[in-house]
Simulated assay, not measured.
Amino acid sequence: MEPLPIDALVVVADGEGARVFRNRGERGNVSLHQYDLLELVNMNDDGPAGSMPGESSSRQIDEATFAKQLATGLNSAALKQQYEHLVLVADPTTLGRVRRLLHKEARQRLVAELGKDMTNVPLEGIERTIMAR
C-alpha cells in the first residue's frame, strides 16, 4: 500500500452529495482539508447516469443524476490537469455509477476506490479509513 500523495483529491460521496478534500499530509500521513461540498444541481439539464428502469423512484433518478454530474466534474478537472491523484469513497451503488462514466484521464489518476458510505462520518474517521486502505 503506497502512501496517499500530497495534494491528492479525495471525494467522499453518496447519491445526494459529495465532500471534496485535498490531502495536506506529509511523509505518508493523511491530513484532509475540505474545500468543496457538492450537491445535485440543475436537474432539468442533466439526466441520470445510464438507463433507469421505468419503476425508478424520483430519489433513484436524482441519485443517478448526481453520479453523472460528479463524474462529469471529475472528468473535466482531470482534462484540465487540476489533480494528479484521485481517491473515490462512495457507497457501492454511487461508486459503480461514477466509475462507469469516468474518462480515461480520470481513471488513470485513480489511486484508490472504497465502496463505503462515509458522507456522514467525521473527518478523523475518513482519514483513518483512507490510511488503512
Score class of each variant (00 low, 15 high):
Pro3Ser: 14
Leu4Glu: 11
Leu4Asp: 10
Leu4Trp: 01
Pro5Lys: 04
Asp7Tyr: 07
Asp7Asn: 14
Leu9Glu: 01
Val11Ser: 05
Val12His: 01
Val12Cys: 12
Ala13Ile: 11
Gly15Met: 14
Gly15Trp: 06
Ala18Phe: 02
Arg19Tyr: 03
Arg19Phe: 06
Arg19Glu: 10
Val20Ile: 15
Phe21Glu: 13
Phe21Tyr: 15
Asn23Val: 07
Asn23His: 03
Asn23Lys: 02
Gly25Tyr: 02
Glu26Ser: 09
Arg27Ala: 12
Asn29Glu: 15
Asn29Ile: 10
Val30Lys: 06
Ser31Val: 14
His33Gly: 13
Gln34Arg: 04
Tyr35Gln: 13
Leu37His: 08
Leu38Lys: 01
Leu38Trp: 01
Glu39Ile: 10
Glu39Val: 13
Asn42Ser: 12
Met43Asn: 09
Met43Ala: 13
Asn44Ser: 10
Asn44Lys: 01
Asp46Tyr: 05
Asp46Leu: 08
Gly47Ser: 09
Gly47Cys: 06
Pro48Ala: 14
Ala49Glu: 06
Ala49Leu: 08
Gly50Lys: 04
Ser51Val: 11
Ser51Pro: 03
Gly54Met: 15
Gly54His: 09
Gly54Val: 14
Gly54Asn: 10
Glu55Tyr: 09
Glu55Ser: 10
Ser57Gly: 03
Ser58Tyr: 06
Gln60Pro: 01
Gln60Val: 05
Asp62Leu: 12
Asp62Trp: 03
Glu63Met: 09
Thr65Trp: 00
Phe66Glu: 11
Ala67Met: 00
Lys68Gly: 08
Gln69Ile: 04
Leu70Gly: 00
Ala71Gln: 00
Gly73His: 05
Gly73Arg: 06
Asn75Glu: 01
Asn75Leu: 07
Ser76Ala: 12
Ala78Asn: 00
Ala78Leu: 05
Leu79Arg: 11
Leu79Ala: 07
Gln82Glu: 15
Gln82Gly: 05
Tyr83Ile: 09
His85Thr: 11
His85Met: 11
Leu88Ala: 04
Leu88Arg: 03
Leu88Phe: 02
Leu88Ser: 09
Val89Pro: 01
Val89Arg: 02
Ala90Met: 07
Pro92Gln: 11
Thr93Tyr: 07
Thr93Asn: 14
Arg99Gln: 13
Arg100Ile: 15
Arg100Ser: 12
Leu102Val: 06
His103Thr: 09
His103Tyr: 10
His103Gly: 08
Glu105Pro: 00
Ala106Gly: 05
Arg107Phe: 01
Arg109Trp: 04
Leu110Pro: 05
Ala112Arg: 12
Glu113Gln: 13
Leu114Ser: 10
Gly115Val: 05
Gly115Met: 09
Lys116Leu: 15
Asp117Gly: 12
Met118His: 06
Met118Ser: 07
Met118Asp: 06
Thr119Tyr: 03
Leu123Arg: 08
Glu124His: 04
Gly125Lys: 05
Glu127Lys: 10
Glu127Pro: 03
